[in-house]
Design a protein around this nucleic acid. Structure first.
Lengths: 200, 200
DNA sequence: CAGATTTCTTGTCATAAGACAAGTACACAT
DNA sequence: ATGTGTACTTGTCTTATGACAAGAAATCTG
């Protein structure tokens, strides 16, 4: 029974994590090392993965569920800064890599299954696996592009289009997240978003 | 005379570049190597440093002048995505690191003095200097934060406040860039921005 | 199941910003 | 210096969205 459980864990772990860390400069053995550095963690709906004022000590890869990060604006209202869906890396790079307290909260919107890796373990791999920094650079690059695009979208696309873009690209969010969180993410009030929905 | 010119170049080069690459894991000799990999390049007002459809082969550090990057939105209008002022790294990470054609244009708004480094030279240093990837990670982290903040600002701050924030944080831009470019950067029309200016 | 709490919808009114157009000021080139 | 174009301002009107408030619907909890 122990064996069977172990086997199951490994398979899921592998299927989820391998494609994420795949990189031409990372070989099989190294990939294995990286994957093995992750531990399974479950979060329940409402749990905080990271809280304002604390310093991140790990990041995680989301197997299933939905997570959002939010910060407070100048009025003290909470503003959704990002949503994370299955297969994504959930990380507060600023806090984790600069070792400073975060200004953001990261919270599970549904029950979640995650694979977590500690900063210290990550650092060891980052320094010992030659291709790992390049993998990380690529990942950062993609994320940077994402936020740049997002700024352009908020600045130029009409609200309805922004909603439709999100609906097309991440329908899980529209389905699972409460309207008010989607509204702050899109930069509109919840009543406006409700009216926009009605039109569709 | 040749010596004197060489000396001058080195001093300026060093004073500009050293603080940018300073990092606890990079020693004196390595720092020297990195700095020496840069070459001085001048651009004139209006010159393109990178053009839509081309793939970036270098990045540069701006000694003096003002640069903007812009993309086209769904209507074909050009939208300022970023401004770069003296002391900043001017780079299209997506194109440079993923080796793909860029969707952005990078253009000098004034005459500029820059220190340029080729991708190939950068790669050699990135792989041979142990602390360099960590320096890069920190830099990326800061940039990521910048774009995230920008998205929140556009989504939540009223236009006038956004203008005032920019004025406070990068007054050179307000002074030197044409109003229409500032307007697209802030996500307003140029006539609205003109009226906002009048109020102040 | 009942009450409480949260989420979402809808109404009315106010307001900021956009669209469009005309005019002025300034810069650049011949 | 004269003309051409670009940059900026200003006016009028329209429209999208916000603010506020009330009510309906759904969800949670004892």
């Amino acid at each position: 029974m122990v064996d069977k459980h172990f086997f199951t864990t490994c398979v899921m772990n592998t299927a989820l994590l391998l494609p994420i860390y795949q990189h031409p400069l990372i070989n099989e053995a190294e990939l294995r090392q990286i994957v093995d550095a992750h531990q399974k963690v479950n979060y329940q709906k409402g749990d905080f993965i990271l809280q304002e004022g604390k310093t991140a000590n790990c990041y995680l890869i989301l197997e299933s569920g939905l997570i959002r990060s939010f910060a407070h604006n100048y009025k003290g209202e909470d503003i959704t800064t990002d949503f994370f869906t299955a297969g994504e890396l959930v990380i507060d790079v600023l806090s984790l890599f600069q070792r400073i307290p975060t200004q953001e909260n990261v919270q599970a919107l549904t029950d979640c299954v995650c694979w977590q890796i500690n900063f210290d373990d990550f650092q060891v791999l980052f320094r010992s696996i030659a291709g790992f920094p390049e993998w990380g650079r690529l990942w950062m690059t993609g994320k940077l592009f994402h936020f740049k695009q997002r700024a352009i979208e908020i600045a130029t696309l009409p609200t309805k289009e922004r909603y439709l873009t999100l609906l097309k690209e991440k329908p899980e969010i529209i389905r699972q997240a409460p309207l008010k969180h989607i509204a702050t993410y899109l930069g509109v009030t919840d009543s406006s978003l409700s009216r926009i929905r009605k039109e569709l």
